[in-house]
Design a binder for these strands. Sequence first.
DNA 1: AGGAATTTGTGCGTATGTATG
DNA 2: TCATACATACGCACAAATTCC
Lengths: 260, 260
Amino acid sequence: MTGEAIADFGDEPMTGTSDGALARAAGVTAWRQIADAIEADVMNGRLTPGSQLPTEARLAERFAVNRHTVRRAIAALAAKGLLRATQGRGTFVEAKPLAYPIGRRTRFTEIVSREGHEAGGELMSATETVADEETARRLRLMPGAPVLRTEVRRFIDGTPVSYGTSFFPLPRFAGVTAVLRETGSITRALAACGVTDYMRAETRITARLATGDDAARLDLSPGRILFVVDALNVDGTGTPVQAAHVVFAADRVELVVENG
Amino acid sequence: MTGEAIADFGDEPMTGTSDGALARAAGVTAWRQIADAIEADVMNGRLTPGSQLPTEARLAERFAVNRHTVRRAIAALAAKGLLRATQGRGTFVEAKPLAYPIGRRTRFTEIVSREGHEAGGELMSATETVADEETARRLRLMPGAPVLRTEVRRFIDGTPVSYGTSFFPLPRFAGVTAVLRETGSITRALAACGVTDYMRAETRITARLATGDDAARLDLSPGRILFVVDALNVDGTGTPVQAAHVVFAADRVELVVENG
DNA sequence: AGGAATTTGTGCGTATGTATG
DNA sequence: TCATACATACGCACAAATTCC
């Protein structure tokens, strides 16, 4: 693999006859050779994180194979988390995972912007309901107590990294919905209800594979790994203010526990 | 599903004609019906964590199918993490994941025994080598400085839960090998070198799928989820004493971050 | 607002090489 | 040697999502 970058061909003629040439009738399948070529381009920096690959049609032309064959190579790399293909947009090189500190002060927006990225939040739903046994125990409420249930999806530089549901004790935090819908920031939503500061009391981390629903919400392929994070936030007096159940795309974040 | 537990049939006659009977020629494959039946037995507590299933041959007889069909059902549940089949031993219901606290004082043996389980450790290898760039940075050494590299596998109640490599600065911790080989305990090994107390400074958590090697070492099926944990331990003065790179079987532990 | 162009996603059919029995 | 099954690869057509004018 000494060829030029796959993405670098434009209208100019090919610079080498061996470029893009596959060893047909060799022991390795065509789609795997293509996948290896693309992966090498990513590893060598010829394709940088966030950059767009040529269209499947152009890659097929380039490697002199059918588009299906290119698609198979891309699918393999997407399953590895190296690429991400979106219908109507194109295929892109995935960004490096963001270090996501988990500590007493865990604030999504602060974390992301401190690393030089743009944080985004989207309130997907907000309904008043009653606490089930598990939620009541975590929020130290009676089962059946009124709670606000919100579903929030979070983005870094426009790509979704997590989504999940949160529960807030209800007489106290009735006002979070409006702020959450407008800003997508939990911190500001709680501040609007008089919680000037809150702390992460406990974080439980498990993992599972992405279902079709997860895949759709996080724009990744089914079967990728998800972190399942159950978090409890408390106010200055130690009173629970938020119980969250969030799934993260495991190859878009790296969870970091710092013990200062 | 109102049948008796699968594991409960012994020499007594069947208590109901429908027990174990499959809806052949229905829309659901035989192996999936068997898998669902076993899963229901686990969920309802008729099969408890740690208990052994009947042999594949007996299950095949029970459901009146070929043993291959039973194996497919078991394989599906093993892939979900519900069962674990070990050659020569049998098939067992997986235990619930153990809560594994990650904090300033993270001690494997203490954590496990406090939860009422038996902790085990096995030193797989110990070699003197030199620090590569990454290891040197973490241990605050010069690249090329001598370090001790150990590979340790850990068990809870006899089942492997993690394995990984650790690096110790070498002039100081030459004595850990012997203690580690004898006790499998990092805490005692460090104590033997004069480190009466150590602290977890940082823990980085990512995830990946188990390869064949991982699967062999942790006695799980390839493709299961692994937590990849990079940890740094320091002594009372803040000097790094151990840099570890450990993989955990993600469905045998739940990582818990507590912020006192 | 709307419609064309672009790009990925999906389905079907066909042919070929390679194990398997 | 034949039959079968499976994965690979190709070709064509259309659907669906996004972007751009």
